[in-house]
Design a protein around this nucleic acid. Sequence first.
DNA 1: CAGCATCCTTCACGATACTG
DNA 2: CAGTATCGTGAAGGATGCTG
Lengths: 130, 130
Amino acid sequence: MARARRPGSYVCGIDAAMDVIGGKWKVLILWALHEKPCRFGELRRELPGVTEKVLAAHLRELEADGIVHREAYDEVPPRVEYSLTERGETLNEALGPLGDWGKENMLGGVSAAAGQMREDDDVALIAGRP
Amino acid sequence: MARARRPGSYVCGIDAAMDVIGGKWKVLILWALHEKPCRFGELRRELPGVTEKVLAAHLRELEADGIVHREAYDEVPPRVEYSLTERGETLNEALGPLGDWGKENMLGGVSAAAGQMREDDDVALIAGRP
DNA sequence: CAGCATCCTTCACGATACTG
DNA sequence: CAGTATCGTGAAGGATGCTG
């Protein structure tokens, strides 16, 4: 996306990861799918402003990278469900510290860090999100 | 960079962080400066392929975001040294898990994880780099 | 040495319209 | 509903040349 995709060799792991999440909506898609598997139109509603074309393209890329799973049900009307793969979940977790950093340093360094964070989910891992 | 810079409000911390490191060479600059403070030309040699214009632009943005510090010495010939700020260091650390993920999942999931990793530096934190 | 000034290319993203 | 097809745009990035 933001750079040459799949040149075969990256300078480092960050480079490779940046390639995977380099799309404008990639991380938002990741976040939306982490909350719950979503259908196409559902996803579109979760990401205000994204166009069908771009959403479809991003989903195809994420699928190619093994981040999301696409399940098409042969029904009428057609139904397709997107969900995170195991690899997608680990990516989401790896994004956690970065999200924390962004929230602390770029947003209003809210002190939401300590105390009011629930732990019944893996909120601790993926904090710094909406 | 890759998206609208400083719209004033991001969807989440990841969004904000992605904005900071969204440039094509940003993370490489971060990495180079983490190893040691660098002069402009030095930095250029560390990043094969980057042009002066782009490197200068990225450095200015990183400086504006409080990630790197620019120290200009009034000598002849002119000398400028770039280094990571405290915030830059924390960003670098926050990038660690992502680097690990990229190395494990996108590169040759090398088993370099265990054993042959030296710990005299903070290698453990910022693994997955060159 | 450390840059800024220009011009140019390219690619991600967007808008709109149309199918199975 | 879940997409494809086509056309258009803007901004990031690259190439080259010049300056304090």
